[in-house]
């Protein structure tokens, strides 16, 4: 069953009006995205900074209003719901943030921070709340003592565990993890990824996992969605990633440092930098940096087309 269906999602931001400039700059963060997520699936989202990954995450959870397009959650269109209509659905969709020290209130004890969602949504009777929090802490590998401590008393990895526990308090179905492991050291990162994979299987969660590290995503996700300047470049099964067709995906793959000193020689280095989303290139958004671009790429926009079973590419040349 589909848990999420997204069609033609567009989100723009208006920059501040500049002195002597007629119209404010319009930054096009999401430029007509369509994809869907099955129940129990993990969808990985990769792309360079500024490609709209986080904007997409926030739009999906309706933390930002969208300009146009539709988000259908379990058969129900949630695009135009108001905050009070959204509230019961918030239990079902939760987010894990990148920086656990910034997303936890420094003046709130962990116990209270984890209990707050239970209070707000009133889903667990008052006398059972402490037990529920203890259970959650154990679930993420922390001791119940943690309840009486403040966020600064924990290391980065432990704080991220707390962030995960908080997302799980309300028994969600969908988790959006926005760069949840990017700020962690490599040995801790592996622990957290193992924990997330465990919990996901245990509670049959569906997950959108955002990261800029293709290797991490390849490991945790079933399907990978590659984004560039607010558009989908390629959707591919993670076991198939080696057969990626889009030139951008290939460049991303070859830019990832491989922990093997002998494998490092053939690198395709992407020239230049990501163009400003306030001034998108005409035609294919990637043509300005594409190693195989031709003249027609600057003229018409390639649509996302299916190559074989679930593998979609937005490039006319491959």
């Amino acid at each position: 069953m589909r848990i999420l269906e997204v069609t033609d999602l567009v989100k723009t931001f208006k920059a501040k009006r500049r002195f002597l400039k007629r119209s404010p700059e319009v930054i096009c963060a999401l430029n007509g995205l369509s994809f869907n997520l099955d129940e129990g699936e993990t969808l990985g989202l990769v792309g360079e900074s500024g490609c709209g990954k986080s904007t997409l995450a926030r739009c999906l959870l309706k933390l930002y209003p969208v300009d146009s397009g539709h988000i259908v959650y379990r058969g129900r269109d949630i695009t135009r719901l108001n905050p009070s209509q959204m509230k019961p659905l918030r239990c079902e969709m939760q987010m894990i943030f990148q920086d656990p020290s910034a997303s936890l209130n420094p003046r709130m004890k962990i116990g209270n921070a984890l209990m707050e969602p239970l209070v707000v949504h009133n889903i667990v009777p008052k006398d059972q709340r402490r037990d529920r929090v203890t259970e959650l802490l154990n679930l993420v590998g922390l001791h119940a003592d943690a309840m009486g401590k403040y966020p600064h008393e924990f290391s980065g990895g432990q704080r991220q565990r707390i962030g995960i526990a908080r997302a799980l308090t309300v028994n969600p179905r969908l988790i959006v993890a926005d760069e949840a492991v990017s700020a962690l050291d490599i040995s801790i990162q592996a622990q957290i990824i193992n924990l997330m994979t465990d919990l996901k299987a245990r509670f049959n969660l569906s997950m959108i996992f955002i990261a800029h590290d293709l290797k991490v995503v390849e490991h945790i996700a079933d399907r990978i969605l590659v984004m560039y300047l607010g558009k989908i470049m390629e959707v591919i099964h993670s076991d198939e990633i080696k057969n990626a067709r889009h030139p951008y995906t290939k460049c991303l793959l070859s830019a990832v440092p491989v922990p093997d000193p002998r494998a490092a020689s053939h690198r395709q280095i992407l020239k230049g930098e990501i163009p400003s989303p306030a001034n998108l290139p005409a035609g294919c958004v990637f043509h300005t940096r594409c190693p195989i671009a031709r003249r027609e790429c600057a003229q018409h926009v390639p649509g996302l087309r299916e190559i074989k079973g679930g593998h979609q590419v937005a490039c006319g040349l491959v």
């Binding site: 129990g40 993990t42 290391s155 050291d185 592996a190 622990q191 465990d198 299987a201 945790i220 079933d222």
Partner: peptide, 24 residues
Amino acid sequence: TMQKLMPKRVEKTFQGFKSIPGAV
């Protein structure tokens, strides 16, 4: 144990990390 817990599709891709326990 992972195999028992997980739906079929997932079990194929997941191998599990060998992480270092504990912290610095």
